[in-house]
């Protein structure tokens, strides 16, 4: 178990190092591009150089990277090129936003897809067809389109929910729920559609196994067979899907955050990429990878619980 945790930690660290290094060198640009975007179209080359020197962008690229790395190890992720805000403080304020919609999105997706998937697998027939068709539609609709439609209907026309913005749960729990409801739905639709297919497939596979027949032959009630035995056995592949969904939803959040003007990691990543705000982008990548590694770890632990054959190695 400890060895497992250590290996995971090592993998996580190597992942972070790899991802941030790759990002740094991929996104890194000539200092004058950065300073040009800071100082605007009127600045002269001398202005650009002065700014670059003030920001330390005139140093060799490797020195800049090692400098960042050294800081990151001690928790100092540097400062945005384009604002006075430290990357750490940007992340602290953006992570909860994205995590809110992604985590709730995954949760909703897990619950809904479990219900729909089981329903389709067990009932079969017309219900199965309906669920299948719905899930195909769900997969085929681009999520920004869904998001736009939700805003038009629920925010602009009916004024039921806010069109934009994020409210911290510390400020108001009901406000928080209201602010994430539409984004979560828009985010979860495609993932529900995909996960439903997975759950359905896994359930069908499990329900066709010998031990389910034997359980039935032993007189175990159908309810217990479905929700205790089949679900627990189907949970293992479903959990794997869930971890991929989680990562996928992080990507989806980028688009959704734009539609709902949510100040999350996705928006931050897009803007940082577009401006070449390397420190911010590195921070976003690092924190994203940490979250993903942590979630995968949790899912592995959950997998160990549902599947006794899994030994945590």
């Amino acid at each position: 178990m400890i060895a497992f945790a250590l290996r995971r930690l090592l993998f996580g660290l190597s992942l972070i190092l790899f991802a941030t290094t790759a990002t740094f060198f991929l996104v890194y640009r000539d200092a004058s591009l950065v300073t040009r975007n800071i100082l605007g179209e009127g600045a002269t080359q001398a202005d650009l150089d002065a700014r670059a020197a003030a920001m330390g962008l005139d140093r060799p690229i490797l020195v800049q990277f090692l400098d960042w790395l050294g800081g990151a190890v001690t928790g100092d992720f540097g400062q945005s090129y384009f604002s006075t805000e430290s990357v750490a403080s940007i992340l602290v304020s953006r992570v909860p936003v994205t995590l809110s919609i992604v985590a709730v999105g995954v949760l909703v997706s897990a619950l809904v897809s479990a219900v729909l998937g089981i329903l389709a697998a067990v009932r079969g027939g017309v219900i199965d067809r309906i669920v299948q068709v719905l899930s195909v539609i769900g997969m085929a609709l681009p999520n920004f389109w869904v998001a736009l439609m939700l805003v038009v209907v629920f925010a602009v026309t009916w004024r039921l929910l806010p069109a934009t913005g994020y409210v911290s749960p510390a400020q108001s729990v009901s406000g928080w729920l209201a602010s994430i409801t539409l984004p979560v739905i828009a985010l979860a639709v495609a993932s529900i559609a995909a996960a439903t297919q997975q759950v359905r497939g896994a359930m069908i596979d499990v329900l066709d196994t010998d031990y389910i027949r034997t359980l039935r032959a032993s007189g175990v009630r159908e309810r217990s067979i479905l929700f205790r035995h089949a679900l627990k056995n189907a949970a293992s592949p479903a959990l794997t899907v869930l971890s991929l969904q989680f990562i996928g939803l992080f990507g989806g959040a980028i688009v959704i955050e734009k539609v709902f003007a949510l100040p999350g990691l996705g928006t931050t990543a897009v803007n940082a990429t577009l401006q070449g705000d390397v420190p911010v982008l590195l921070g976003v990548v690092a924190v994203t990878v940490v979250i993903v590694v942590a979630v995968n770890l949790l899912i592995d632990l959950a997998n160990g619980w549902v599947n006794p054959k899994v030994t945590l190695r």
Partner: peptide, 20 residues
């Protein structure tokens, strides 16, 4: 390992960097 790495990074974020 490489596969795990690639799967662990949201691919849209990587695409942003590639486009940049």
């Amino acid at each position: 390992w490489v596969s795990d790495v690639v799967l662990s990074v949201p691919n849209k974020v990587v695409l942003l960097a590639v486009i940049a």
